[in-house]
Design a binder for these strands. Structure first.
Lengths: 229, 229
DNA sequence: TGACAAATGTGAACAGTGTTCACTAGTGTG
DNA sequence: CACACTAGTGAACACTGTTCACATTTGTCA
């Protein structure tokens, strides 16, 4: 009876071993210099053995992207609203968490997004993250903080901004970027503030810039619907 | 004497034949299902012959991305300012042209950006496009239309927005996006308007939305610095 | 014109890839 | 004990990118 459970656990254990080793080898050796045969040798199995656990190399990639997507979703939906927190603040913190995850885990972000649709199958992972974002926007609209326009339009525009800055920074690290925190703040503030009913004054004046306010900048906003500062 | 020129022309002709065929095969057969051998057969040569014109497969990819980048740069810097045109309008039109090129030539955009650094060598192509963008922003600042902050910060935030919406639309066409023109307009308007000294009223009110104003929306703005509407 | 040299293309080979398949060794069930 | 089933293997197949000795064309110059 429970021998089946034991076997399945063993099986999933080896699957995880394969996936973990694959991810490591993959991010280190690039993409193409990563081979099933070297992977097999690294885990001490024959190349053919892998096919008992995954039905192809692309299947492995699909599982990797699904994993990375789950982590991304989890990270960006892990922000919990404080009591009576401004929904705009929650929204901004969520986007910040999304970008921060991508920047701190560039391999995951690369695998999840920039792999070239090799694994766009399955339960459509991006949808879940997107739904969470839209829900937060809806809460901003309900609270009278945003214009009651199509929340899909707003969500997608914010997603575009967040993905743009993340993917550029992740994918072209050799470009002479300005300070990451400044750039991320600017992109998110621009994208979000443009949607607000009463856009708050942006700190764009000159030298009194916002330094060291990476994730906090959103949290210190007023907690209720307020007029412009 | 001129036999050398003739030879070089012939050589570059065959190089172009190889590149063109490679690009076609590449965008059709995916990336990995594209092989030097099938390419050789398609142009009627032996596989080994290709190595007289390119020193490796990656070299071919590098040339492809350079080509695509040149086209992207050319497209986005092809907008010429009309006499007395608002520099903000020029800026927006440039960004629109950038995004439009990416959407109308998704293969080029994919090759240029989303190929995974396989060809990040050479004279650093992205730099050129970026410099043009920054010059346009500088003109907005000089005209008193934008806050005189670090133009690199502004340029990079706009680039992030433009790249974000373009790459998402190009890379995940199966996602249920809203109308492309609406989304692109929203992203660009948000990103640019947030940087203006006197942000013009965005048409976000409700149902009187901006339809069929894809590239015109920027051009019909007031030509001089004006108060908010 | 004929000898030489350079350019151009080729077939065969090498090492490596993803994938399949007949096969063996081990394990729990009747 | 016999049976079915699982996990794993080595050999093979059809590929891949790349190299190299060789053949063929082509232009130059004595």
């Amino acid at each position: 009876m429970n021998i089946q459970r034991i076997r399945e656990e063993k099986k999933s254990e080896i699957r995880n071993l394969i996936l973990g080793t694959a991810r490591k080898s993959f991010v280190r050796e690039g993409y193409e210099n990563f081979s099933l045969r070297s992977l097999a040798q690294k885990i001490g199995y024959s190349p053919a053995a892998i096919y008992r656990y995954f039905k192809s190399k692309d299947d492995i990639f699909a599982c990797l992207t699904a994993e990375s997507f789950d982590l991304l979703i989890k990270a960006s939906s892990a922000v919990v609203p404080e009591p009576d927190e401004d929904p705009v603040s929650v929204l901004k913190r969520g986007i910040h968490a999304y970008v921060a995850f991508g920047l701190e885990n560039p391999d995951h972000y690369r695998i999840a997004f920039l792999l070239g649709g090799r694994a766009a199958k399955g339960p459509q992972r991006p949808r879940a993250a997107y739904e969470a974002l839209r829900a937060r926007i809806q809460r901003c609209i309900d609270g009278g903080r945003m214009f009651p326009v199509d929340p899909d339009l707003l969500a997608q525009s914010l997603w575009a901004a967040a993905h743009g800055v993340t993917s550029l920074l992740v994918q072209r690290p050799s470009f002479p970027w300005v300070a990451r925190s400044k750039l991320v703040d600017r992109v998110i503030d621009s994208a979000v503030n443009a949607l607000l009913v009463h856009p708050q004054a942006v700190s764009l004046g000159g030298e009194n810039d916002n330094r060291n306010v990476k994730k906090i900048s959103a949290a210190r906003n007023p907690k209720r619907v307020a007029g412009r500062a």
